[in-house]
């Protein structure tokens, strides 16, 4: 893989993805990052293995199956496989397959909404427990300064942004939580496109963002 990713997902997030306990929006973030990052893909596989070991041998007692359970299962097998949607494969798009799947196409299918200062966003449809959105930040533009009530993960898909003294390029994920107050600024060379997920509304310090926040669902 050619990507040189420096900022990865945390062990907590990767483990929760393997355990299947993340909100859908966060699953989408993890699946998108793993599509670009072999390091995290391998780490996620090790947490799958941990899940297998827990299933195999655990203090949680196995539960007896119904007496006709095996016969019923053979009948299911005889009924044949259920139809499954084919997962989209790799392409030239800057969007990894799971993201194209949620968008229903490539970049040109995204329905951007302006949120001020040239910044645009598009909310993706996921369960309500967390929010996933695409962000379009013109080159050189700063996001409004804000803090967080929960966890926010932002992954760069095109361009780059700087936050304090850290630099985030394609595939890099910035993890922000309740302690983080920040003003990410898009790199001057190219418009920045990101996937961002949040499990709680952001806290904006300025009065205007706070007013529009419920409308934008950010």
């Amino acid at each position: 893989m050619v990507e040189k990713i420096k900022h990865h997902l945390t062990p907590e997030i990767l483990m929760a993805y393997a355990a299947g306990t993340l909100p859908e929006a966060f699953n989408l973030m993890v699946a998108s990052h793993l599509s670009l990052c072999d390091t995290c893909r391998a780490e996620a596989a090790s947490y799958d293995a941990l899940g297998g070991a827990v299933l195999e041998d655990t203090i949680a007692a196995p539960m007896d199956m119904a007496s006709d359970s095996l016969e019923a299962t053979m009948a299911r097998i005889a009924a044949g496989p259920v139809q499954e949607r084919a997962a989209p494969g790799p392409s030239d798009s800057i969007l990894p397959a799971p993201l194209r799947d949620y968008i229903g196409g490539d970049l040109d299918q995204i329905r951007w909404r302006p949120v001020g200062m040239g910044v645009k966003q598009a909310i993706l449809t996921t369960s309500r427990s967390a929010t996933a959105r695409m962000l379009y930040i013109p080159a050189g533009t700063a996001m409004p300064d804000h803090g967080h009530k929960g966890t926010e993960l932002t992954m760069v898909l095109q361009g780059a942004f700087a936050d304090e003294d850290e630099y985030f390029g394609r595939g890099d994920v910035e993890t922000a939580d309740t302690d983080t107050q920040h003003t990410p600024v898009a790199d001057i060379h190219e418009d920045c496109i990101c996937l961002a997920v949040t499990d709680a509304p952001l806290r904006f310090t300025g009065i205007i963002p706070r007013l529009i926040q419920p409308l934008l669902r950010i």
């Binding site: 393997a18 355990a19 299947g20 859908e24 699953n27 989408l28 993890v30 699946a31 998108s32 793993l34 599509s35 893909r41 799958d48 293995a49 899940g51 297998g52 070991a53 827990v54 299933l55 195999e56 997962a87 989209p88 494969g89 790799p90 990894p96 397959a97 799971p98 799947d101 949620y102 996921t126 369960s127």
Partner: peptide, 27 residues
């Protein structure tokens, strides 16, 4: 095998208990 079955069961749990899709990384 237990890892593989765990992942099938996990995805089924998300499907049944939460009625959500589980996004998987691209091949």
């Amino acid at each position: 095998v237990s890892t593989w079955i765990f992942t099938i069961a996990r995805n089924r749990r998300i499907d049944i208990l939460r009625r959500e899709r589980r996004p998987e990384p691209e091949d």
